[in-house]
Computed example of a mutant assay.
Amino acid sequence: MAPELRFAPGRAPRLPIWSAPMAGGPSSTALLAAVGAAGGLGLVPAGYLSADAFAAKLDELEAASDAPWGANLFLPGPPTADPEGVAAHAAALAPLAAEHGVELGEPRWEDDAIDAKVAVLLGHEPAAVTFAFACPSSELVGRLREGTGAVVVATATTPAEAAEATAAGVDALVLQGAEAGGHRGAFVDDRAFPGGGELVPLLELLRGARAASPLPLLAAGGLMDGAGVRQALDAGASGVQLGTALLCTPEAGTSDTHRRAILDRRYAGTTVTRGFTGRPARGLANPLALAYPDAPSAYPEVHHLTRPLRAAAAAQGDPDAVHLWAGEGWRDATEEPAADLIARIAREAGLA
């Protein structure tokens, strides 16, 4: 029997289904409210937002929905040790940026305003706070738990990371299988691996993490229907996190260019690339994703470098030069309303 996730009174979602925190647009307020209304838990992505914008996003969601919600924070890594690699990547991308009528951005390191965003959360009552890109310190875990009453959750991609996060005192783990779309949550981006570390399939990761940790586990990666959700729950997950399954719902803030690339099956499959942001991320295998297998490990420096190019490509309807994050189950994405999708998956998984 999977361990139970213990939420503060009145903050437990009706269903063990969370929406992945898809930063940069897809996790719109409309999507999170729809997920909450359907009985799931919508996660507000703080990534890429200023602290003030993050606070406004929380206020907007609380005004739109009385359902429980959670939030996700990016934990900063060190500045890049490869400035020469970043400069070479910029030189390679400059002609493509010019073709799209823009100049590349200035590569720079930042901590994503983590302290200010924690302070914002301390003024709210989230059901859960999740972390990505590193293991939170035990001090930060305790401060958020005591200050908000939230379940504090780390994202792990290997059994070793699951054990490390458990030792830090988190309450639960999101296990990001190899199939998952978007940025890999590896604690350290190891250049020896295309995925920043070992790419462990979800069911194998569930088995390994269960041996390494007694905590409740949330399964993420390639889950597109109730059969997959039921398989994850039967393998020991206490809940699941859906991302790609929600990308093409009407409520999602996914760009038209991204949405059409998925629904039109424009590309043959997915790949993991550092070419867009300097951190491994799984997306559709478009030309830019495939063109730079040796892109530097330099997040967020490369993210800031390529941002004008990616924004221009999206606005111009050019899917070949924009990040199209998607998991391996992307071919099963539908356009059904989010509440209908959650209800269908819950029914298929025997949760309704």
Rank of each mutant, 00 (worst) to 15 (best):
A160E: 15
E164V: 14
A156T: 15
V152T: 08
G181P: 11
L175G: 12
A165H: 14
G169Q: 09
V153F: 03
G185V: 09
A186I: 15
G149V: 05
H183N: 13
R184Q: 12
T157S: 15
A165T: 11
A172F: 01
A172C: 01
E179Y: 11
E164P: 00
A186T: 15
T155L: 08
L175T: 12
V152Y: 03
A150F: 07
G149Y: 08
P159V: 10
A156V: 15
G182P: 03
T157N: 14
G177K: 06
A180D: 05
G185Q: 07
P159F: 09
V170D: 02
A180H: 07
V152C: 03
A154I: 12
V174W: 08
F187T: 14
A160W: 02
A165D: 13
G181K: 06
A172V: 08
L175V: 11
P159A: 05
R184S: 14
T157M: 15
A172R: 04
V153W: 03
G182T: 02
D171P: 05
V153Q: 01
A168G: 02
A156H: 12
A167C: 02
T166A: 14
L173M: 08
A150Y: 10
A168T: 14
E179K: 09
G185C: 09
T166Y: 01
H183P: 13
A172L: 00
T155H: 03
A167R: 14
E164L: 15
A167L: 14
G185M: 07
H183I: 13
A154T: 12
A168R: 15
P159K: 04
A168N: 06
G177Q: 05
A150T: 11
A154R: 05
T155Q: 09
A154L: 06
G181A: 10
V174T: 06
A167W: 07
A156R: 11
G182M: 02
G181T: 07
V170C: 06
E179P: 03
V153D: 03
V151Y: 00
E179A: 06
V174G: 01
G149I: 07
L175D: 11
L173G: 11
P159Q: 07
A167K: 11
A168K: 08
V153E: 04
A165E: 12
A156K: 10
V153K: 04
V174S: 00
A168W: 05
V170F: 04
A163F: 09
Q176A: 08
A162W: 06
V151C: 00
A160H: 11
E164Q: 15
V152I: 15
A163H: 02
G185K: 11
A163R: 14
A150S: 14
A162L: 06
G177D: 04
T166V: 04
L173E: 13
T166Q: 10
V174R: 07
F187P: 11
P159M: 06
A168L: 04
G177S: 05
A165W: 10
V152K: 01
Q176M: 09
E179H: 10
A180T: 11
A156Y: 11
G182R: 04
V170R: 05
F187R: 13
G177E: 05
G149T: 06
T166F: 02
A180K: 10
T155A: 06
V153T: 13
V151M: 12
A180Y: 10
G181N: 08
T157F: 05
E179L: 05
T157I: 05
A178E: 13
G177C: 07
A172K: 04
G169I: 08
